[in-house]
Nucleic acid binder design. Sequence first.
DNA 1: ATTTGATTGAGCGTTTTTGATTGACTATAG
DNA 2: CTATAGTCAATCAAAAACGCTCAATCAAAT
Lengths: 259, 259
Amino acid sequence: MLNGNHKELAPRRHDNLRELIRGSGVIRVEEICRRLNVSPATVRRDLDQLEAAGAIRRVHGGAVSVESRLDEPLFDDKASIAAREKNRIAEAALKFVETGDTIYLDGGSTVLEFARLLRERTNITVVTNSLRAAHELAGRGPRLILIGGELRRLSQTMVGPLTRFTLQELHVDKAFMGTIGMTMKEGLTTTDPSEAFTKELVMSRARQVILLADSAKAGKVSFARAGRLENIHTLITDKELDKEFAKELTKTGIKLIKV
Amino acid sequence: MLNGNHKELAPRRHDNLRELIRGSGVIRVEEICRRLNVSPATVRRDLDQLEAAGAIRRVHGGAVSVESRLDEPLFDDKASIAAREKNRIAEAALKFVETGDTIYLDGGSTVLEFARLLRERTNITVVTNSLRAAHELAGRGPRLILIGGELRRLSQTMVGPLTRFTLQELHVDKAFMGTIGMTMKEGLTTTDPSEAFTKELVMSRARQVILLADSAKAGKVSFARAGRLENIHTLITDKELDKEFAKELTKTGIKLIKV
DNA sequence: ATTTGATTGAGCGTTTTTGATTGACTATAG
DNA sequence: CTATAGTCAATCAAAAACGCTCAATCAAAT
């Protein structure tokens, strides 16, 4: 028996572990063993639990803090294929934009792709909460209005209660939205409640809501609800969309465009 | 900044890699190997993944930043004119920032320089209308709140009546302001009325107003008035400031810091 | 004191990551 | 046209990390 000293109880150990990870943003299993004086097996079990609770994110060799930018490039292997889908979806969305329109651009990679296509349009007004979309259009292009709010690092979007004050002064013709998950039952879901709050608010201020989402989003449920599918007027997605889901959608009156 | 010996976790490595690319805009594989201490094979795999995630763009021999193109065109030469003075002014301003503070960052190259120095501070809240400052702090650093409003392209700041609705919900401890011109008679002046409107509003919401302006601004008058000098509590400037102007300033109770 | 259920650490086969090797490709020079 | 240098993708083997199982251990309850 190596260390007769002090073995800590699981809850305290979890707290310490959280603290360790928050401290440096990233830590390796081996180091956790050293610092907490436990075996790798135990560390892995702890990490599993903390990940299930959403407190951290595991990676090969250790774990990273969820607040840190380190875990931003979270992508499945479909990500590279999805790039082409996203581009086609964005192209299709372009047909909805008319001269004189005021449109809203949400966060998310598909909408960002769409934003890039608007760089040459000078006859529209773009309202957005996405810092990346703003950056795309900052040099030239449409009249650009950013809504105020707290920056959420992971998504690079302005979210939360502060977004309300600018948004309630505005109306937009068309809102182009992204999402993490969509199901008939839960509607739109996203990872962050503040993000969800702003999404829902935006949709209530738009005359027409157009959702840009590749088929992988269908059936997925994320953490926070961001509005019912009934709020959507049009969904632009790819051809792989689940047939059953498609049927349900059209039944509720949502226009479906598959590219 | 150098990590000599121990192997880093993949996410951290990706993070550093992004930073490297963002820093110089371009980088070749060979150099990444040297800087991160890994083999070319690993570097290429990392680059593949980062490209799939849209974080960078690969080119033969290395990789380039995706946002490198429209970065700081006319802004840079303006910034380089009095770069040394601006940097010293920014360093001096840093002394005013205390833990827990909520500070406002205005537009302009001097304040932008100041923003860069805040990248490692995580214990403060930054409110800003400057897209460039936001961009500096978007990856890491303080809690970041952007005020809403219409983007003015030339200055890359959010200005105009829409800024009112977010601002009136906020109070800040210290506002770090820039300006185009300052005189005893006209006070602060800037080129755009909307810009002036927002500046004036911000200063009314700040407990302490700190003006960052090199000495060339003294005596200059621009188009739109953005508030009287009495609104300023502290001016940080360089040693070349006109003696007469300095005397008048201190007479009105403004604290003067010359660096 | 004994039982019980949970927690822990070690052993072991599997998976992931990494760096070296190889052959293909491109561009430039001779 | 060939040679050469540089880069790249694919493949492979070694090392590290992983998940799983099982026995030992521990805390709490009887």
